[in-house]
Design a protein around this nucleic acid. Sequence first.
DNA 1: TGAATAAATAAGCAATCACTTATATAATGG
DNA 2: CCATTATATAAGTGATTGCTTATTTATTCA
Lengths: 109, 109
Amino acid sequence: MDYVYMESYLKAISDHNRMLILKYLSKDSLCICEFTELLDMTQPAVSQHMRKLKTAELVTEEKRGRWTIWSLNVRHTLYPMLIHLLSLLPEPEITVESLEAEGKRVVCE
Amino acid sequence: MDYVYMESYLKAISDHNRMLILKYLSKDSLCICEFTELLDMTQPAVSQHMRKLKTAELVTEEKRGRWTIWSLNVRHTLYPMLIHLLSLLPEPEITVESLEAEGKRVVCE
DNA sequence: TGAATAAATAAGCAATCACTTATATAATGG
DNA sequence: CCATTATATAAGTGATTGCTTATTTATTCA
């Protein structure tokens, strides 16, 4: 692991909104439109965050119909450290469960 | 640990020069003028990096005569994780030993 | 088909970044 | 006291950041 790679990895995590995204992903795989609800953020903003996380190999994506389902990249060398970091952060106020209660959870197929 | 604090902590680490500084500090306490040699960087540049690290509580400083001796903040909650991260990074090419060999190591008193 | 939905991309913008050079502050020692 | 040394601070600069709005691409389904 060289300094340049570590720098880009850490820069990708070093944003409170992306940490929130990763915190959510540590529990469920989610799509962009769900994040716009969870983070109260515009669709392009979320999309750009996901691209940064993907470039840094923190997440993986899977096309499913209209949706792109995003997941944590559990194969990454630093995945255990990431999980540890995320465990230190509080649960977000808006939960995926509350999304479900509002009928806004995406169910593919 | 809230998201804002974690963000500022990670942002402070997310720079290859500051990671190098922390890597050096994981072995020795050092002063600004030694870092200018080790990193081949101007004195104000090093000074500004140290201020960022200090603001994020990653390092501590101790005035000793003309010099300010900088050390890792071993009391920080995230210190063990920091040490782990640093252990994944390669040893810098310019070592403190090579500084000593050139007679550029600062010896207070 | 064609309207609706999900996501990506592009361009623009204010704020922040890591540096630079110049200068100020502070301590040492002749 | 004064020159030297170590560090901090200030102001300026080009690059990058995280957003915005507008538009494009792609998929579903009536």
